[in-house]
Amino acid sequence: MSITYLEAIREAQAKLLRDDERVFIYGQDVGGTFGGAFKATKGLAKEFPARVLNTPISEDAIVGTAIGAAMQGMRPIVEMQFADFSSIALNQILNNAGTHYWRTNVPVPITVRLPSGGTKGSGPFHSQSMESIYAHYPGLIVMTPATVEDAYTMLIEAVAIDDPVIYCEHKYLYYHLKADKLPEKGLPTGRARIAREGRDLTIVSYSAMMQESLGAAEELAREGFEIEVVDLRTVKPLDTDTVLASVARTGRLLCVGESFPWGGATAEVIARVTNQGFHLLDAAPQRLNAKDTPIPYHPNLWSAHRPNAKKIAAKARALLRE
């Protein structure tokens, strides 16, 4: 048997709906026989018609409704049709959900699923990676699963967490990643994972770029380099200890993310390592992000815009020479 990243997300939701009456799924086109723009909820409305609900195109109100329900004891899962559209719900996510526990002592256990990142031909408004925006604001947990196994266990974990969780699922991984079976349990939330061991250079990444980084490590292995790849799994909280321990082994750090280059998760990792582990570094830490333009439509432009295994390997090669 083989299961995809997308099927893992669907299976996690099926299990959550089955096991916990407080769970409901709320979003555009998630219900009926349709099951979502990417089919992440396909078939779920048939089994749970009262708890898999279509909504109007009202991202602000969708999240607001989830917040109100969560305050009253429910465990809503919101599906944004695309991560990009969560910008309409920023106010509810940042100013309502993110501040609520701190202000009132009452937590808001919502999970907001963001189909994130680029696929060919999707253009500026259906390709964005928003994790750095959400990580910047207090009160939110930001998950960025890079494997089928994590996609499954982390979504189950997200719903169990009492605080608001932004769950960034990568659209490119939906069909490209497969696993033999789903695990019962994953690493604890917030813990990074050494995805590949090495001693020459550390690549820190997450989500689809973690897979590209593994590709780069494979390419460099053929040239005799042993690259360690750290999968952050969640960008907030950020497992600085695991990253520092890896840099202590390798002395070189490259951070890779698909989001825009100004600030963000990769910059945060570098800031922390420089601050807490400057003595561990044999060369200036580097990072690789998408270009600082909107995400282009044409496949030629799109593949030039985002990092990929080849570009990561080139950047790593340069860093290895330093």
């Binding site: 602000d60 607001g64 305050m71």
Partner: peptide
Amino acid sequence: ELAMISHLGAMVSVTVGALMAKRFR
């Protein structure tokens, strides 16, 4: 008694969600 945020209109959908939770139960 919900705790308003300054961004006007935001509490309407929150109230809707609270009512839905009651209906779910």
